[in-house]
Amino acid sequence: MPTDKEINLAIKTEVPYLNEPSANSSAGQPGPHINEAHKVVVRDLDFFYSGQQALFGISLNIVEKKVFALIGPSGCGKSTFLRTLNRMNDTIPGTSLKGSIKIDNLDIYKGIKDVSSLRTRVGMVFQKSNPFPKSIFENVAYGLRVNGIKDKRLIAEVVEETLKGAFLWEEVKDKLDHSAYALSGGQQQRLCIARALAVQPEILLMDEPASALDPLSTAKIEDLINELKKNHTIVIVTHNMQQAARVSDVTAFFYEGYMIEYGDTRKLFTKPEKKKTEDYITGRFG
């Protein structure tokens, strides 16, 4: 097990993404042209649950309108990392964080006051589908309503459009007023994706979105991800390495709170640079 410092060093010298100009961008530096592709820039991120460190010096860039996959064994910190990106960890008492996360060059911890507006820009889909105990329509409309949209016609339009975008419209258009709980597991998860999309986030975080679903529903979700990346930056946590290989452009491997390596998905799965990564993707542990 390499030490913290060694890993940081290794990341800084060996991972090509970090050596691009954006790596030394600072908040004051103008020019989106430099950072054009880098939607999210994470630097030296440490994360603590009531004093216990869960993430160690994570530094990475997430490219706009690509799918970024996080893989690693249970407890490696990939979900924790995902939840730092929309500050959902804020809801857990006793957590703290060091380092910086910038989205579009703005530090989302130090640079903004309104967490809820961040979360409308960075949507989230959870592992277990968690629709509200409301109608299908109201589930999708919820995000619009809490963001102050009252125009009924506009809401109805957005709901329809979003459900179409999530490939769910044909299945639910005749029962929009039915309870969301009446849908199947896969449909519920697509409803949750639609619900997240309704507020038009730029980034969509997905925490093992298909882990509780059957293969057919999983395939539908993966198709959807491929469609969504045309307009959204997607960060997905997955246990399923085939899934990471199928849907993602870039993959990061997390282990015990460290990011061991990250890079082009095809390369990471065929020619990983680190032994640990190779052991994991070849199924020697995890």
């Binding site: 929309n86 959902m88 809801t91 809820s116 507006s117 979360r119 409308t120 949507g123 989230m124 959870f126 277990k128 968690n130 629709p131 509200f132 105990p133 919820y142 995000g143 809490v146 963001n147 949750c192 619900r195 997240a196 507020v199």
Partner: peptide
């Protein structure tokens, strides 16, 4: 908790 999280994640206060 998931339902409350879902609401917060949609930008609800």
């Amino acid at each position: 908790r998931e339902i409350k999280d879902a609401s917060l994640a949609l930008g609800a206060t």
